[in-house]
Design a binder for these strands. Structure first.
Lengths: 136, 136
DNA sequence: TTTTGTTTACGAAACTTTTCGTATGTTTGT
DNA sequence: ACAAACATACGAAAAGTTTCGTAAACAAAA
């Protein structure tokens, strides 16, 4: 039986840190996980101890970034926000702060800075056609 | 006579913070400026004192993010990195951390999350055509 | 049962970023 | 000349993030 706790006493307006984003990403990719699993997924690059990961996830729970099932001794954590909205949030922030609120500007810069391949360009064009069809 | 100081003893690998990015942005928009000017540009939103802005810019100078002309009492600061590369840096970071290194993924998410207008779509398409011409 | 290992909770150190107060010197206006 | 305003430098408090050590509870193994 799963009983996901949700912490509603969130310290709201603190932004998501890079370490937190790393953990969210693993949860998005693998689904609900234990601290141990997450810690091992971080493993190679990060040289930090287990309790560090634990503490971080506890704090994220307090912030409302994660929920957790504490019905068994080994808690199982899940991302409280969807991959979609998490990524969009990250984008929004940069669009707002760096690209004067214009997603188009960001897209241009991203494309200009990277020399996408012909295949990629075609993929994006196809996607644009899709959008245009939906939005006449 | 302008004599821009450049601090070469940079603490390298610290990343650019949000506050720092705000200041860079103003410098990119307005060109070299005094601390007072920057502080007033930040003005309305930020409720922080003048010396806070000063200190921030001094630290940015130490980090090598800004250069400055100290030939007159009122120093004049300039961004040490170009608008282009600063914005690209910001983008790189998020592409790397959130979009598995794929700029195309970021572009898709940005476009999908925003319902761009027909004009914007056309502008992006035109831009893609440009890229495709250069890259046969 | 006793030992060994795993898990959470928690406090606090270490580090970074943001903020400000104060000292000191320069410029400006009266 | 003198006061008021302004500029830099600097130390340090305040706030936030990351890290770890240790204690307590439980589980598994010997």
């Amino acid at each position: 039986m799963f009983v996901y706790e949700i912490n509603r006493r969130q310290m709201q307006n603190r932004k998501i840190t890079d370490s937190e984003l790393e953990i969210l990403q693993i949860l998005w990719a693998n689904g609900p996980s234990t601290v141990r699993t997450i810690h091992e997924s971080l493993g190679t690059e990060k040289q930090t101890g287990y309790t560090t990961t634990l503490k971080l996830m506890q704090i994220m729970f307090e912030k409302g970034l994660l929920t957790r099932d504490a019905s068994s001794r080994t808690h199982i954590y899940a991302a409280a926000i969807s991959e979609q909205s998490g990524k969009q949030q990250a984008l929004d922030k940069i669009i707002d702060s760096v690209f004067k609120g214009s997603p188009t500007k960001l897209v241009m810069q991203a494309l200009g800075g990277y020399q996408p391949s012909t295949q990629e360009i075609d993929a994006i064009k196809a996607y644009l056609d899709e959008l245009q069809k939906q939005n006449p």
